[in-house]
């Protein structure tokens, strides 16, 4: 009985979660005329791949995918490395101003993006970082460093310091100790932080739209925003683009799902 209830609840929630996904796939497969036709069709009369073809022909969607992939992978990697070093330091040493550092990181999350955007644009222009993937990476790193550092700090605290000390006694320097001993133990946390950062970068719109406008540096969200035109929201192409854009994250997610569940707040557990 209890088991049945559980199955029903889980099933219902799965349905609620997946229905929008189903609907977006169906919309992406409908011919334009059928998207706006009554009564609504829950499966297209004739499946069409025109929206997908359009995506890869008119817009250089392949290039955008690649841009997004480069930016997200590099930024996520840098964020994770900085997070490991910073988090480890904050966890292992007590020093004057440690609380202030933590607070400074936490406050960054509260700053409304839109008051900083104008000045940030001028700064990026002065540094000649506009319209460059590298510029976008730098901003993304800055955006995510606080989160990754805080998470990593929590993670390090759960690892007995004795592990590292034992390694040092053996004559290894602190760095080697960290690499040999700490990193393997922290692997789930590292994986979780990495994928979290990746997803954030992959989906980020407002910064990308502000700093990127040349064709060859556009990322996926910027390109998708272009489908909203004054004339017509091209729902078919939008749906197709959504489907394509979600696939990489889903694949990545499926690959390291186990780490995420174990990892993400394990870091935050100790707050």
């Amino acid at each position: 009985m209890r088991r049945l209830g559980k199955v029903v609840v889980l099933g219902a929630w799965l349905l609620i979660t997946l229905f929008p996904l189903y609907w977006i796939v169906v919309t992406s497969l409908k011919p334009k005329a059928e998207i706006f036709s009554m009564p609504l069709k829950y499966w297209p009369d004739a499946i069409t791949f025109e929206h997908y073809a359009e995506l890869f022909s008119f817009a250089d969607f392949g290039a955008y995918l690649l841009n997004s992939l480069i930016v997200s992978l590099v930024a996520a990697a840098v964020v994770t490395v900085i997070g490991v070093i910073g988090g480890h330091t904050l966890a292992r040493f007590s020093f004057p101003g440690r609380g202030a550092v933590m607070l400074a990181f936490l406050v960054t999350q509260m700053i409304p993006l839109f008051i900083a955007l104008g000045p940030l644009y001028l700064l990026m222009s002065d540094l000649d970082l506009l319209n460059r993937l590298a510029g976008l990476m730098l901003v993304y790193v800055a955006m995510l460093v606080p989160f990754s550092t805080i998470i990593m700090r929590g993670f390090c605290e759960r690892i007995p310091a004795a592990l590292e000390e034992a390694a040092q006694v053996d004559g290894a320097t602190r760095l080697v100790a960290m690499l040999r001993v700490v990193i393997p133990v922290m692997l789930p946390g590292i994986a979780a932080t990495f994928i979290f950062a990746f997803v954030q970068c992959w989906n980020e719109l407002f910064l990308a739209i502000t700093f990127i406008d040349s064709e060859d540096s556009k990322t996926i969200p910027v390109a998708m925003n272009s489908f909203i035109t004054q004339y017509d929201i091209d729902w078919g192409s939008m749906a197709a683009a959504t489907v394509v854009s979600v696939i990489p994250t889903l694949v990545l997610f499926a690959a390291i799902r186990r780490y995420i569940v174990e990892g993400l707040t394990a870091g935050a557990v100790k707050g």
């Binding site: 900085i82 900083a116 700064l123 800055a142 550092t149």
Partner: peptide, 14 residues
């Protein structure tokens, strides 16, 4: 590294 990023790209514009 973290401090530089946050100071330059978050606090300075803010």
């Amino acid at each position: 590294p973290g401090a530089v990023f946050v100071a330059l790209f978050t606090y300075y514009p803010m």
